[in-house]
Design a protein around this nucleic acid. Structure first.
Lengths: 228, 228
DNA sequence: AATCACCGTTGTGTATACAAGATATCAAAA
DNA sequence: TTTTGATATCTTGTATACACAACGGTGATT
């Protein structure tokens, strides 16, 4: 598909380390509030402190961890309100992707988009939330690409990645797959039709509900906690 | 103004180094295509290679430089189309700020915004483009803050910073200050009025013209080059 | 004469050593 | 008993040393 596939075959350990640590953060192995000791990480991964430091600095500048001078790195307690803010921005980025995609999508990309969409449908019918979750990412990625704005694709992808753990929480919400798929359908229709305003609005709403669902979930958890 | 002013008084040399190098990149001291030799930078700033490397990695993950494994860091040739893409995204981010600001701005922030606006007016009347340029940044920052979305503020500020050198090119375009100020006026009116759609549209247009102006400038330069 | 291979140099990637600040512990005094 | 102060330890920040890959040049071979 993408003939400009770049396989840099990075020799930098710090890059690989960054991914490993990021993985452990988003999967909850290093929950919020965790102190990331450099020596400890170095021992864990069998390398020296140097690549670990480089990885931490990179993660820090992406916003995944916080580094306070002379006090080390910690996984930040991402406040629920913060996450909501991020969903708010995500909604707008996706809306922008949709708006541009409706105007710029090529025939090939239309096919790819519908293919991804039908794959989601299959996952819905099979009632396999995990698969649907995966395919959903592909679906959105297709829309990003159809915007024909490389910088936007990067930004949207990055934020999407960062929000992944919070989106994951909603996997098994009642009727989530069916609702999501119907929203996707409307989005695809709008894009194919070339209705940029509609596509934009649909996508914004689609993502915004996720943010609201997250807020609901947090509120529920808080009440639950308070109840005990 | 902001009582939560955080002055971390960073002890990390790499952080300061990052800013210094960034400064030199955006001001053209290290023009696109420059090879950034680690030892050379270390000597220049009187430190060892370690902090230099950390600074470079940070700049790399922000996208300001490119690091290819075993081949060192270079200042990328940011294609004109790439910059246009970034302006396109910037326009959308600013539009979002305006939309939210129109709904959420507080009385205090209204005052601050109008104050920044009047400062711009003074610079326009004094016909001092450099001052106007500075105050223009403050003006936009006020709008960001009025969106009451901290994450959005960060994203918008970061991209604004990154686009600064390209915006600077347009400083002395004919009537730029007067036009810009009039656009600002419309934006302020829309925000104060609470008309989020209008504020959003005005801001999007305001930034979009900057991107188009940049494109025009590039086209002109290309023609000029071809002519010689 | 042109091309390819080998070797030397240069510079990145990693490890270790050292310096300085921050935290923790323990003791002493209020 | 609590609080404060001093010291010890631990961790980060920086420098230096070493290993290895990439680039360039020179020489030999076709």
């Amino acid at each position: 598909m993408n003939s400009t596939a770049e396989i840099p075959a990075t020799t930098r350990q710090s890059e690989r380390l960054g991914e490993l640590i990021e993985e452990r953060i988003v999967t909850g192995v290093y929950p919020p509030g965790t102190r990331l000791d450099e020596q400890e990480l170095a021992d864990t991964f069998g390398v020296s402190r140097t690549p670990v430091r480089e990885a931490l600095i990179q993660l820090s500048s992406v916003g995944l961890i916080e580094i306070r001078p002379r006090r080390g790195a910690t996984v930040p307690e991402v406040g629920a309100d913060r996450v909501c803010e991020m969903f708010e921005v995500m909604a707008e980025l996706e809306a922008m992707c949709g708006r541009l995609a409706a105007r710029r999508i090529t025939p090939d990309e239309q096919i790819a988009l519908q293919k991804a969409h039908r794959a989601c449908e299959a996952a819905r019918d099979a009632n396999t939330p995990d698969v649907y979750y995966q395919l959903n990412e592909v679906f959105h990625q297709r829309i990003y690409e159809a915007s024909h704005n490389g910088f936007l694709v990067e930004q949207a992808t990055a934020l999407h990645r960062r929000l992944r753990p919070y989106r994951r929480l909603q996997l098994r919400v009642r009727n989530r797959m069916a609702t999501s798929f119907n929203e996707h359908q409307a989005i695809v229709d709008a894009i194919i039709k070339g209705d940029s305003d509609l596509a934009s609005a649909q996508l914004r709403a689609h993502v915004t509900v996720q943010g609201e669902r997250f807020a609901d979930l947090v509120a529920t958890l808080r009440d639950f906690k308070a109840g005990t």
